[in-house]
Design a binder for these strands. Structure first.
Lengths: 252, 252
DNA sequence: GAGGAATAGAATAAAAATGATCTTAATTAA
DNA sequence: TTAATTAAGATCATTTTTATTCTATTCCTC
């Protein structure tokens, strides 16, 4: 591995991790700590990173400004697995939709090498990540800015979704059950309902901890989905319920 | 395999990989490292690649990474002044538009305490800043993502602009003159033309270094603007020209 | 087929990158 | 407080990379 490759690897890691320790880098890149230090020194001289005690972090940019703070650490491994599994459904030249959320962000992490796809999203963090780390065609929905979720919602967001025919949509949620998805805000309902109309295939991505929860507004029936990707803690008994409504459950 | 074929092969690999090591190239092309080095030397002389220790990189990648950073530091003081001056035009309860650019970002910096206004923008950096640092109502245009400018462009972006009636729009540009604004990409033309139709008052914010420059696509006549905010290096003689077209020039 | 230019590879020396080892500083635990 | 742990930097032998030069080969042109 040549120096330039390492520099990129460091930046790539930072784009998913906020801070990376020198120890982690020596293991991952299999070089001595001195080499890592020298790499960091160069990147810092370029203004691309700033070194902190024991590691590095990205310089201020929309990347660091946009961070799904606490959420990112919750059920992280499940989300990573779901993201990987979802990404495997994406074929060359597809147009895909990534709904706002940290699980869908994990899907995005798996798309850095797919430069022949087109991605539509309403999530600022996903957009920022793909803007920097991928070469895919990228569309952002726009609309009313939802600060809490760092995304765009409302009927204005729904407009652009309606204008684009998607091959597959990955929809996230913070609460769902055998009857369908619910959300705490009406503005998200418009978005989710538009998505299922625009996409040929609809896939729900959600870790099992959100199953059984309910929020104020009903957004979508579970029958809208072709498949659900979730983790192994999902109750076995519920798989049948979903199968009855022609929803395939993918456990990973 | 003749040299020209190898050159193309190297560029092809780079288009998928960003960095390619000399070792990888010697294996892939089955020639000695010296031959690869000479190939790289030619490509580098042509400005198509840059050689790094142990391999080559595309020049383009560095370009795009630097473009935004360079812009932020260029004529910074002028931009800060223009931003302050522009912000003074904003009254409570107004709906304003901030066009993509670093000068308009300076306007945003002056808006952190104005929580009674509504801001519409197509710039990801501005959106990220206001999302975090202000409490104003915020709308994002959406549309095709322009990586270089970290913004949204195209007719999809223009759509949302048309849907919102704005009290004042602050439009930026990288090239303008007595005849009007021009841009290097057609996609931005749609956006700018939609803005002037949707806004009651249009204000051009641009430091004087951009005056006299011209890009491929004509976007707007200078007569579209009610005022121009620029710095003290703006040529005095041109103030009259603009006044004849009912454009007020504000120097700061 | 001779002559000459362009190209490729080998040998070598210089320069740069790397890793091991050690020293020093900062932090934490006892 | 001291001892232990962790991080940072310095130095130098070793390895890798780079640049230069020279030689052999190919491919034209005449």
């Amino acid at each position: 591995m040549i120096p330039a490759e390492r520099h990129r690897a460091i930046l790539a890691l930072l784009s998913t991790q906020e801070v990376v320790s020198i120890h982690q880098l020596t293991e991952q890149l299999d070089v001595s700590h001195m080499t890592i230090r020298r790499d960091i020194g160069k990147l810092e001289a370029d203004g691309q990173v700033i070194s902190v005690s024991g590691g590095v972090q990205l310089t201020e940019s929309i990347h660091t400004e946009l961070s799904h703070d606490i959420k990112t650490t919750h059920n992280q491994q499940e989300k990573i697995n779901i993201g990987k599994s979802a990404a495997s459904l994406i074929k060359p030249n597809m147009t895909i939709y990534l709904d706002a959320g940290t699980t869908t962000l994990e899907i995005a992490h798996n798309l850095v090498d797919q430069d022949d796809i087109m991605v539509v999203t309403n999530d600022f963090v996903i957009a920022a990540f793909l803007m920097k780390n991928s070469k895919c065609k990228l569309y952002f929905t726009g609309g009313k800015v939802d600060r809490e979720n760092q995304s765009c919602v409302g009927n204005k967001a729904a407009y652009l979704i309606k204008e684009i025919n998607m091959d597959i949509a990955f929809i996230s949620t913070s609460s769902w059950g055998p009857k369908g998805l619910s959300t705490p805000s009406e503005d998200k309902v418009y978005v989710k309902q538009s998505i299922v109309k625009s996409a040929k295939v609809n896939c729900l991505v959600s870790d099992s901890s959100k199953y059984g929860k309910r929020a104020t507004f009903h957004a979508l029936d579970i029958g809208c989905f072709d498949s659900v990707i979730t983790d192994s803690s999902f109750p076995r008994s519920s798989i049948k319920d979903l199968a009855e409504q022609n929803v395939e459950v993918i456990i990973c």
